[in-house]
Design a protein around this nucleic acid. Structure first.
Ligand SMILES: [Mn+2]
Ligand SMILES: [Mn+2]
Ligand SMILES: [Zn+2]
Ligand SMILES: [Zn+2]
Lengths: 152, 152
DNA sequence: CTTAAGTTGCAAACGATTTGCAATTGAAAA
DNA sequence: TTTTCAATTGCAAATCGTTTGCAACTTAAG
């Protein structure tokens, strides 16, 4: 088996581990929540609410339930919210203990997504923070371009 | 007079130069448009539609007119649209010939904005593009933190 | 099994942005 | 200048993603 050189090939989290995190936070493991987590853990890229809704088994739950679930999961730090600038929030599972900070490269033609390992250079960010006297500085960063398949 | 070391201290554009650009593009110089440009050219940071609306002289124009004006100005490359992730688009004038690409540092407490000169390192972006076979790659990047005044 | 707090479905409410349309206006043409 | 007409505006209604109130329903305890 070849060695994996991509940091973003994060291992799929066990559903039991996810529900365990929920239980520990005194949250109920409901069927909508289990279904949502099940969908998220099978997807490597951030999903919109509608995408999650679409993947839900027949008779899935209400859209409002997904919105509420994502809010809660975000508050617990179990999912990370991303903004690709198209008006719809996207969510990706975050491994236990991790903060989920990372970036994406998005195809402006087909909306395809690539997980990116690079981050904005720490020392430059530190300089930006100190020069302006800001504390607790982070950043939101996404790349856009045309993927190989979409280049005519 | 001291030398200016901040690239973002861009000079205020003349209203005549702005209307000239409009005229050249076969757009009418209407009173709402002149008022909007006048407001934009007096502000160093991106403004939301509501902020522009609020600064409009009494009996200003309709919100829809501002939305339409910003769409047009953006298409002509006269303003650049920014997204601070709070659901409201922000617009900043772009100098003639420039593309307006730059970033901001936003205070998560008071929403104060600082114009940032730094950009994501070109060679890293180029590497991200080539590694993934993407063409025409750019990025959207904003920094967030707590400004000096808001640090208790 | 009983129970109470936590959750859900559904519909209404929201906030930002867009759009249809009739009335108005800027600026080219006469 | 005055005429003329496409471009533009105001207003209201429509969209879209997201949130919220509330009554009915579950989950996890006890
Ligand atoms: Mn990702
Ligand atoms: Mn700016
Ligand atoms: Zn593509
Ligand atoms: Zn502040």
């Amino acid at each position: 088996m070849k060695n994996c050189v991509h940091k973003h090939h994060k291992k799929k989290q066990e559903l039991a581990s996810l529900t365990g995190r929920l239980r520990r936070e005194a949250r109920k493991i409901t069927s909508p929540r289990a279904a949502i987590l099940e969908i998220l853990r099978h997807h490597p890229h951030p999903l919109t609410i509608k995408e999650i809704f679409a993947e839900l088994p027949k008779g899935g739950c209400d859209l409002a339930t997904i919105y509420r679930a994502m809010q809660m999961l975000e508050k617990l730090g179990m999912v990370k919210r991303f903004d690709f600038g198209d008006g719809a929030a996207r969510f990706e599972l975050v491994g236990e203990g991790e903060d989920g900070h990372h970036h994406h490269l998005i195809c402006t033609r087909c909306a395809g997504v690539v997980e990116i390992d690079e981050c904005f250079p720490e020392e430059i960010e530190r300089r930006i923070a100190s020069v302006n006297g800001f504390a607790g500085v982070t950043h939101r960063l996404e790349f856009f371009g045309v993927c190989p398949g979409c280049q005519k």
